[in-house]
């Protein structure tokens, strides 16, 4: 081999490359760099043996340590569950009232309930549980089927008008208009009566006639003064909250051809611990009742 040209200043060999009179030094790699490089090569060899590395047709070589990212996740989840074992066991065994009276357990249940709510319930009730037209607001103190922990829990378990579940909350209001039970002017009168009992502006003469229609057709479910009946799911008509709107047009439309919301029974979809946490979360939103009125 012909000895390569050496640079006078540095004593370094030349590569032999030359561009417009500029010659390239063949400067050796810094030693620290070279050793770091060797170390990474050795590390890589070890890594390829220990961890999944080479792609195969349906997967990859598993590696000696048997590591998978899915396994890592499962392990983490398992650890989290183990850390919460005490709370989980208590929530499973204790009654809802007992859970609520334990501050630490309450906090855990509310947090867990909130997480489950956002996944399962927010689609209809909204992420803040404020509901919307036709979807009940869970923050307020107006309950169709009752606002105690047990009542909320039951509603969650069996759903509303969910026919697949035999214990579902069931109520049906006749279509007073489309089925021809009431005449249009009667509907108008009874609407005025509802406006009156819910504290809104009303026509006195019309409402007076409507009171008679109300007593004959509506009282059995909605109560004498419109206070509702939670056993039958009869909504309170005398308060400031109306599920399908409280203005005259909305009320009249609901009497003529009522809409009925459906909520699935969650007992077949979620485990009871989650349902209990959901009940406690919903109860904590500001309208929860401690005893049925």
């Amino acid at each position: 081999m012909v000895p390569r040209e050496q640079d006078d200043v540095t004593g370094t060999e030349m590569t032999g490359h030359e561009w417009d009179g500029i010659k390239e030094l063949d400067t050796p790699m810094p030693r620290w760099w070279l050793w770091t490089y060797y170390a990474t090569v050795i590390w890589a060899l070890g890594y390829v043996i220990a961890y999944p590395a080479w792609p195969l047709v349906t997967g990859a070589t598993p590696g000696l340590l048997g590591y998978t990212s899915r396994g890592e996740l499962l392990k983490d989840a398992e650890m989290a569950r183990a850390a919460q074992a005490e709370q989980i066991a208590k929530i499973q065994s204790l009654s809802l009232d007992k859970i609520r009276s334990d501050a630490g357990l309450l906090q855990y249940a509310v947090a867990g309930g909130r997480a489950a709510f956002l996944v399962n319930c927010a689609q209809c009730h909204g992420s803040g549980a404020a509901g919307g037209k036709g979807y009940p607001n869970l923050n307020d103190d107006d309950w169709l089927w009752g606002g105690t922990l047990d009542q909320i829990h039951k509603t969650l378990q069996h759903g509303v008008r969910f026919t697949a579940n035999p214990d579902t909350r069931q109520s049906q209001m006749p279509a007073f208009g489309t089925d021809g039970i009431l005449q249009p002017e009667q509907i108008n009168d009874v609407t005025e009566h509802v406006l009156k009992i819910s504290g809104q502006a009303f026509d006195a003469a019309s409402a007076g006639r409507g009171a008679v229609v109300y007593a004959e057709n509506c009282e059995s479910c909605h109560g004498k003064s419109g206070e509702g009946n939670r056993d039958f799911g009869g909504p309170n008509l005398s308060d400031a909250i109306a599920l399908y709107g409280s203005d005259k047009t909305s009320l009249a439309a609901q009497i003529k051809q009522p809409r009925h919301g459906v909520m699935p029974a969650w007992s077949t979809r979620l485990d009871d611990m989650t349902l209990k946490q959901l009940a406690i979360y919903i109860h904590s939103l500001g309208g929860g009742e401690t005893s049925a009125p």
Binding site: G128, N137, D140, D142, G199, A240
Partner: peptide, 18 residues
């Protein structure tokens, strides 16, 4: 301030903020 919901109408017509 609670933002979701910003306010809640109660059955007696009063307004509640959290």
């Amino acid at each position: 301030n609670d933002r979701n919901p910003q306010f809640v109408t109660l059955s007696d017509g009063s307004i509640r903020n959290g």
